[in-house]
């Protein structure tokens, strides 16, 4: 890609890597939380709902600062992680965590809606056929909610791709390690003559985001048809 300079290309590649892992990391817990919120009646339901949605309403800088406090090299969690060989602060792995946490509310919302849309009568029918709660979830609820899971995952990917505030606060803006696409745009705009590089990255951001949305729409429609058996 000669159109992009090595520094710009590095930022794009890193962003794709971070967004991929952030999505892979956040979708399974998102499914669990979404199911608990959609079907569960337990103490702390409201609290869980609040905590999961917190990153959506909190200033991203605050989320990043909290991560830095607990999981940075001075934080208790950070020291534990460092001891087991998985340091997060100022590493791309930290960017993954920050992006995953920021993407979680969006993913949970999309999946929760699709789980709530699954007719519970199918779940009780599965139970009468001998399926345990867990089996009902994996063989009936989840497959029927799949279009929503997919839409949530793509939405989460796009969000992770564009995450800025929490990432830059938690893992800073180190080229090649933690300088994701939005951080790179920010950096280019700080230096004279960086506008053209920033402009190229902006175009890529738009293309990726748009592509993700179209892909999610297409997949969801295809899946919905398959689930409905038409």
């Amino acid at each position: 890609m000669s159109w992009l300079g090595p520094e710009e290309w590095q930022a794009v590649a890193l962003s794709l890597k971070v967004a991929f892992w952030a999505t892979a990391l956040s979708v399974p817990p998102a499914i669990g939380v979404a199911y608990a919120l959609a079907r569960g009646r337990f103490w702390g339901h409201g609290l869980l709902n609040g905590v999961v949605h917190l990153p959506l309403v909190l200033p991203p800088v605050v989320t990043g600062y909290l991560l830095l406090m607990f999981l940075g090299s001075q934080g208790l969690g950070g020291q534990v992680l460092e001891a087991v060989g998985l340091p997060l602060a100022f590493r791309w792995t930290g960017a993954v965590l920050a992006a995953a946490i920021m993407a979680l509310p969006l993913t949970v919302r999309a999946i929760r809606l699709s789980i709530e849309a699954v007719d519970m009568r199918f779940e009780s029918a599965a139970a009468t056929l001998g399926a345990s709660r867990l089996r009902v979830f994996f063989t009936v609820t989840l497959p029927m909610a799949m279009p929503g899971v997919l839409a949530g995952a793509v939405l989460g990917f796009a969000k992770a791709m564009g995450e800025f505030g929490a990432t830059i606060t938690f893992v800073s803006n180190i080229p090649g390690e933690t300088q994701t696409l939005p951080s790179a745009v920010y950096s280019f705009l700080q230096v004279p003559g960086g506008e053209s590089s920033a402009g190229k990255l902006v175009i890529i951001a738009i293309v990726v985001a748009m592509g993700a949305l179209l892909l999610s729409e297409w997949l969801a429609r295809r899946m919905a048809r398959r689930v409905a058996g038409a």
Partner: peptide, 20 residues
């Protein structure tokens, strides 16, 4: 006993075949 351990077969008014 939970539903899945009761050994009942249930035919519902609305069939409830799994669409997927």
């Amino acid at each position: 006993q939970p539903v899945h351990k009761r050994g009942v077969g249930y035919v519902f008014q609305d069939a409830r075949l799994f669409p997927h």
